[in-house]
């Protein structure tokens, strides 16, 4: 499989506050052509920051990025401002959790899509509108011609999300980044959007990185899962391997605490404590203070990701205990 995205040792530090915050710490990930990767993690795990790094959306004056991100053979961190503008939307584009904030409230959605197409390609306004109409049909918006002239506030939540997907696909990107695009939706609408993304991915051969905190959503959409904790990838593998045979104690805890497994009246298994403060990370494994398997050594060295099975890695020195 050719690689669509290759992230090597990416670190992102935000320097705007009183203390620097290392939100992403040495993340390496790869995404194959036509593959869907879910980045799973809790708030503050660095999953969204990793995603946004691919489009260099962090404020340059208040953040520091090191490492390398290669998309379609080009190093994203080396792009000039002009190249970056072509790159955004043209090669990689993104959909967000809240379409109401991502879409411009004072232009119709049709105008926003045709503007994006004409920014990237030499094409007449009429042809751009035809493309926009085809996109609306593609994302299954009913009465698409009329909807192109609607403002974002005139659409329902699910419809806005579809319009945003149409906008993201307007310039035929090869990589789509999705930052919790279904979290704010009702379950009945969420499953529609997940199925739509899966269909688009199949038909257009898109490579997708999908950020979510919801294991069920990751299972529905992804081929592979990378679990993040405190800015690092702690486990990565195929959906089947990670869900059925998790090896990192954090992934195991997360899966064990799911209410779906429990019977009414049971006590849920829990991970004690709460996610760590990124400004004051403990030395060694960031999960050690909450981990039942932690050994003295865990508090000294940061465990590297190591192979625990075919295409399945975990960053834990006690993996021998988690078979």
């Amino acid at each position: 499989m050719t690689e669509a995205v290759a992230i090597e040792n990416l670190s992102v530090t935000f320097t705007g506050g009183s203390k620097p915050v290392r939100a992403v710490d040495g993340v390496s990930l790869s995404l194959g052509q036509g593959e869907v990767l879910a980045l799973l993690g809790e708030s503050g795990s660095g999953k969204s920051v990793t995603l946004r790094s691919l489009l260099r959306l962090h404020p340059p004056k208040r953040s520091r990025m090191t490492g390398s991100i290669r998309v379609a053979g080009r190093d994203v961190l080396e792009l000039s401002p002009g190249e970056l503008a072509d790159f955004r939307g043209g090669v990689v584009s993104m959909i967000f959790q809240e379409p109401m904030l991502a879409l411009d409230p004072v232009y119709t959605v049709g105008a926003q899509i045709t503007e994006a197409i004409r920014r990237h390609e030499k094409i007449s306004a009429a042809d751009a509108r035809k493309r926009a109409l085809a996109l609306f049909e593609r994302v299954r918006i009913p009465s698409p011609d009329r909807r192109l002239d609607a403002y974002p506030h005139e659409m329902s939540g699910g419809m806005r999300q579809r319009a945003m997907i149409a906008l993201a696909l307007a310039c035929r990107p090869s990589v789509l980044l999705a930052d919790e695009p279904t979290t704010a939706l009702d379950a009945t609408v969420q499953i529609q959007i997940l199925l739509l993304l899966r269909e688009l991915q199949r038909e257009l051969g898109l490579s997708i990185i999908f950020v979510t905190h919801d294991i069920g959503v990751a299972v529905e959409i992804a081929d592979r899962i990378a679990v993040m904790y405190a800015g690092r990838v702690v486990e990565s593998g195929s959906v089947r391997d990670v869900i059925r045979g998790p090896r990192h104690p954090y992934t195991r805890g997360l899966l064990a605490s799911r209410v779906e497994r429990a019977q009414k009246g049971d006590r849920l298994e829990t991970i004690p404590g709460s996610p760590p403060d990124l400004t004051a990370l403990p030395p060694g494994c960031a999960f050690a203070p909450r981990c039942s398997l932690a050994a003295p050594q865990c508090r000294e060295i940061v465990p590297p990701l190591a192979e625990v099975g075919p295409a399945h890695t975990a960053a834990c020195i006690r993996v021998a205990e988690t078979v």
Binding site: G158, T188, Q190, Q192, L195, I215, G216, V219, E220
Partner: peptide
């Protein structure tokens, strides 16, 4: 969402919002 990677949803039970 289904929790089984081999039994993902094939179609949405409801359409529209």
């Amino acid at each position: 969402p289904k929790m089984d990677p081999d039994a993902r949803s094939a179609e949405a039970p409801l359409t529209g919002d």
